Computed example of a mutant assay.
Amino acid sequence: MMLAATIPVLNGCVPRTQVAPYRYRMTVEVDTPTGLRTGSSVIEVRPRLTGEFAADMAIVGEAVPVDLPDGRTIYALLWSRLAADWAGWIVLWLVRPPAMGNAPIADVVRAVAATRIPLVLPRRLPAGAGYPLIGMDARPSFVAFGDERRPKTIRFIDPDDIGGGMKLRRITLQVTDDAITHTIGDRLPWLASQRGSLKPSSMDAPLADRQLESLTEVAFVRRGY
C-alpha cells in the first residue's frame, strides 16, 4: 500500500502471495511527575505480496494504552496522520537500510523478522524509509477521551505536551514471539459495535474535529484483512 507508491514496480504481473507474518511489541513510555508510566501491545503483521516491490500489510493488534497518574489514559493508535496503515509498515521503514532500497519486498520483510534488537522510534523517519517519507513525523497519533464511555469525546493529544508536566519519553518497537495483545475491548467495549467515524463532523466544525473524523474503530483495533 504505502510502500508500493515509493518503490519502483517491475513490468508484468506477479501473482499475489504471502510471506510469513511477524510480531512486534510497541512500548510507549511517558515521563510524569510521579515517575515513568508505560504501556505496550504486541502486534502481528501479515504481509501479502502484490508484486516484487509492493505489498499490503494487514495487522492484527491493538492501540497502546498508557494510564497516567491524573486518571487519564492516552492511546498510541495504530494510525498516524502520515499513513492509515502506519502500524503495518513502521518497523519495515525503520529496519530497511538504504542498501536494501532496491531489494524485493519479500527480502526486506525477512530482514525485519530477523531483527530482534529494540528499535527506538525516531521523531522523524530516517533515510532508508523511502521517498517521499524521509523526514516526516514517524510517530503514531495519540488520543484521549473526556469520557471513555462516549466515543465522541475523543481528542488528539500532543505527545510533547500531554499536560500536567507529562510528555512522551520514547516509543520502542521490538520483534517478538510473544502472544498478540487482546485487552482493549475491556477498556473500550463499544469498539465491538462501532462502525465508521468516532466523531462525525461538518464542514463548519473546528479543524480539530474535522481531523478527528478520519478516526474509526480500526485506529484502535485490527483483526487482519
Rank of each mutant, 00 (worst) to 15 (best):
E52C: 04
T153S: 14
R139M: 06
C13K: 13
F53T: 14
Q194M: 13
R139V: 00
V28E: 05
A192S: 12
K152T: 10
I90H: 00
R170F: 07
P98A: 06
I154N: 04
A138R: 00
T27C: 14
L92R: 12
D186Q: 14
R23T: 00
P15F: 03
D67S: 15
I162Y: 11
G88S: 10
R72N: 12
L212P: 08
A55E: 13
R72I: 02
M57K: 04
A54L: 01
R222Y: 09
M26N: 00
M1I: 00
I7D: 08
M26D: 03
F145N: 03
G101E: 12
K199N: 13
A192D: 05
G165R: 09
T216A: 11
A192K: 13
L198I: 06
A127D: 09
D204K: 09
M57T: 08
A99E: 15
Q194W: 05
G88M: 08
I180H: 08
S193K: 13
L92M: 13
G165V: 11
V120T: 14
T176V: 11
G224V: 09
G71S: 07
R210Q: 15
V109H: 13
A106G: 07
N102E: 13
S41R: 03
R23L: 01
K167E: 09
T27S: 15
L173A: 09
A179E: 14
A179Y: 04
L188M: 03
V45Y: 03
T183R: 15
L125Q: 02
E29A: 15
M136K: 14
Q194E: 03
T176R: 12
R46L: 14
R81E: 13
V42A: 01
D67T: 15
A55D: 12
G196K: 05
T115W: 08
A54G: 14
V60K: 13
G164Q: 08
P200S: 07
T172N: 05
D85N: 11
Q18Y: 15
E148Q: 10
L78H: 03
W86M: 02
P33M: 02
I90G: 01
A114G: 11
A4E: 14
Y75Q: 06
A63T: 11
E213W: 05
R187P: 04
D209E: 15
D158K: 07
R223G: 08
L188S: 02
Y131R: 09
I184F: 01
P69L: 02
W86Q: 02
L92D: 05
Y24A: 07
D160E: 14
D147R: 01
A113W: 02
M1N: 14
R195G: 00
I90R: 02
L215N: 04
I105R: 11
R96I: 01
A208W: 04
R46I: 13
A4S: 14
R37W: 05
T181H: 10
V45L: 06
F142S: 00
W79R: 12
V19P: 13
A99K: 10
Y24K: 01
I59K: 05
N102P: 04
I43P: 12
D70C: 05
A205H: 06
F142R: 00
R16S: 13
F220S: 08
A84S: 13
A76S: 12
P140K: 07
M1A: 13
T34H: 05
D56V: 11
V109R: 04
P132H: 03
R23P: 01
E148N: 08
W89I: 07
D177Y: 03
P21I: 10
V95F: 00
D161W: 03
E52V: 07
